[in-house]
Computed example of a mutant assay.
Amino acid sequence: MAYDHELADRVRELVAREQHLTERRMFGGLAFLVDGNMAVAASGQGGLMVRVDPEDTGVLTGEAGVQPMVMRGRELRGWLHVDASAVRARDQLERWVALGVGYARSLPAKTPRR
C-alpha cells in the first residue's frame, strides 16, 4: 500500500516552520526527520507512524486507533501506528505531529551523511 499523499501534505503543512527538517521515503511511506531523527511519517500501511518516548508507549497505545508499530512481526517500542481515522481532524493530527517532533528534538542530532 502506498502512503496517503494528502496526509503527507497535511503533515508537511504542520512542520513547515521546523528548522533542520528533511523528508525521506522510508518504510514505504514519507518520513519527516528533525535533525536527522525521524519524528513522524505518512505510513505505507496507511495512517501515521509516530516516534515517541518509549516510556509513553503503553499509555498512548491505550487510545482509540493507536497501536504499537510492528515491523517484520516485531513490535517497535517507542514507535506508534495511528490510524487515519484518529488524525482526520486538524487538532488530532497536530497533537500527534507535535509528540513526534518534540521527541525527535529531544534526541541528539545525527550528523549528515556525505
Rank of each mutant, 00 (worst) to 15 (best):
M1I: 02
M1E: 08
A2C: 01
D4Y: 13
H5W: 08
R10G: 02
R10M: 05
R10P: 01
V11E: 14
R12D: 10
L14M: 12
V15P: 09
V15G: 06
Q19E: 15
H20V: 00
L21Y: 14
T22S: 15
R25L: 05
R25F: 04
F27G: 00
G28H: 12
G29W: 13
L30W: 07
A31N: 04
A31R: 03
A31D: 04
F32R: 03
F32V: 01
L33P: 01
V34W: 15
V34E: 12
M38L: 12
M38N: 05
A39S: 12
A39G: 11
V40C: 11
V40A: 12
V40M: 13
A42K: 06
A42M: 05
G46R: 06
G46K: 07
G47E: 12
M49Y: 15
V50W: 15
V52W: 11
V52I: 14
P54C: 08
D56T: 03
T57S: 15
V59M: 14
V59C: 05
A64C: 01
A64G: 00
G65W: 14
V66P: 03
M69W: 15
V70G: 04
M71I: 06
M71H: 12
R74V: 10
E75C: 01
L76E: 07
R77V: 04
G78I: 04
G78Q: 05
G78N: 06
H81D: 02
H81G: 02
V82Y: 15
A86K: 10
R88L: 09
D91C: 04
Q92C: 03
E94W: 13
E94F: 11
E94P: 00
W96E: 07
A98T: 03
V101N: 11
G102V: 04
G102E: 13
Y103I: 01
A104L: 11
S106H: 09
L107A: 03
P108K: 09
T111R: 12
P112F: 11
P112A: 08
R113E: 13
R114N: 05
